[in-house]
Design a protein around this nucleic acid. Structure first.
Lengths: 232, 232
DNA sequence: TCAAAACCGAGAGCAGTGCTCTTGACGGAG
DNA sequence: CTCCGTCAAGAGCACTGCTCTCGGTTTTGA
């Protein structure tokens, strides 16, 4: 064990360094990072990288999982910093945390939520970390329902056959979640993703200089739609 | 003119054929299409392509503009097929048209609304065609306001400094558009983009088999948020 | 303890990419 | 008919992901 662990330790450090250099390249070169380039940066030969990652896609997968966890950490920490029953505060905090993380790590965000790489299929290892942000939003719904503090405004109700789909999916989260509320929560999650993507990918109108205020207002609209009570 | 135009005609046909082959490759290989591959498909040598497109990015730009116009045509046609005062019908028709187009041309949609290509900056030729879909939505707002048929539900109002930004931007569209309504319209547009992206990029939960119904319901929620009157 | 097994880095090599440059042939314009 | 512009072709450069082999080191197990 002591002798073998020194090799294993060096190997783990090597993997970490490769991932760190690759993450740095990702920030500048975008999704098309080159194994040879990271190998050059590390003073190695390209073929040596393959001792640690069997392919470029495997390296990308490792970076994707790390990015999902980094985003999940940020979102969950922001949510945990709020009063449990301050539903609207938690909603805004999680949304802002996701946006802040995306603005700080644009290339990683593009890797997670941008167009999928053509030949690349995300392995199952990624679906767990990928669900952490939306699950945080579901947690807000759960706490709000338990406290009886969620009142969605009147509006379109899901009809068949969607009603059963939503009800089944809602039951998989927690029993008191209705399909109608789940749909509104998913609308909020979709809006959050769209807001960040538009801002990050440059599709936001240039005549909106106060982007923080715009983001907060648009997420507030979705909080209204979900039925989160106004902050007192 | 007659003699020179035969040359120009052949050249124009060549450009069209290159774009057609490239679009075909785009559907299979995604964003990383190869000039050499399209040249091979046309029985040419790669360097010959450069007689018609100075770089791969120029070819991509041409495809992007064509795709924007194709999407714009579909959206505007769907909108024009509706009764002018059937605001909700127009909203659903345009949303469905955008989704149908995206599902029929996933690679082109990813090219337009996916993560930007790292070294590539969209030239100004693209911003005109790119604005056609959102401008169609603005047209629904304009007709609705002129007919006095839009009643947004109560909810968060934009505060300073966002209020002025939105008001200025709204004035640039048409005078009677308020900043608050514009923000709700932009939320609808953001939601539409997010819905399509989630479905296309495989982030939609697999337990929602009736995707058409889900899409219609979510866009109906946004119609409620905007204040489009219910269909009678 | 000492040989066998596993691991590792370096290098060559293959097939592919975008792009540049030169060469030679063809066709329209004066 | 001659010139000039346009064209396809080919060679070549620098780059990519990836495979394989060759030595050298480290770890393991008998």
């Amino acid at each position: 064990m002591p002798a073998s662990s020194i090799r294993a330790r060096v190997r783990a450090e090597m993997i970490d360094e490769i991932k760190a250099v690759a993450r740095r390249h990702l920030a500048t070169d975008g999704a098309n990072l080159s194994l040879r380039a990271v190998a050059r940066d590390m003073g190695m030969v390209s073929s040596a990288i393959y001792r640690y990652f069997p392919s470029r896609d495997e390296l990308l997968t490792a970076l994707i999982i790390e990015a999902y966890d980094s985003l999940g950490d940020a979102v969950e920490a922001a949510d945990a910093d709020c009063e449990r029953l301050d539903l609207r505060g938690r909603w805004h905090a999680t949304c802002r945390a996701a946006r802040d993380w995306a603005l700080a790590h644009p290339a990683e965000y593009a890797l997670l939520y941008g167009s999928p790489v053509p030949g690349y299929a995300a392995p199952d290892d990624t679906i767990g970390p990928a669900q952490r942000p939306p699950l945080t939003l579901v947690g807000i719904l759960r706490d709000g329902l338990e406290a009886g503090r969620i009142d969605p405004p009147p509006g379109t109700e899901p009809a068949e056959p969607l009603r059963d789909d939503l009800a089944d999916l809602a039951q998989a989260f927690f029993p008191s979640l209705t399909g109608a509320l789940l749909a509104r929560g998913m609308a909020g999650w979709t809006q959050l993703f769209g807001l960040i993507s538009f801002e990050l990918f440059g599709r936001l109108n240039r005549t909106l200089p106060h982007r923080d205020a715009y983001f907060d207002h648009q997420t507030a609209l979705m909080a209204d739609l979900i039925g989160l009570p106004p902050a007192e």
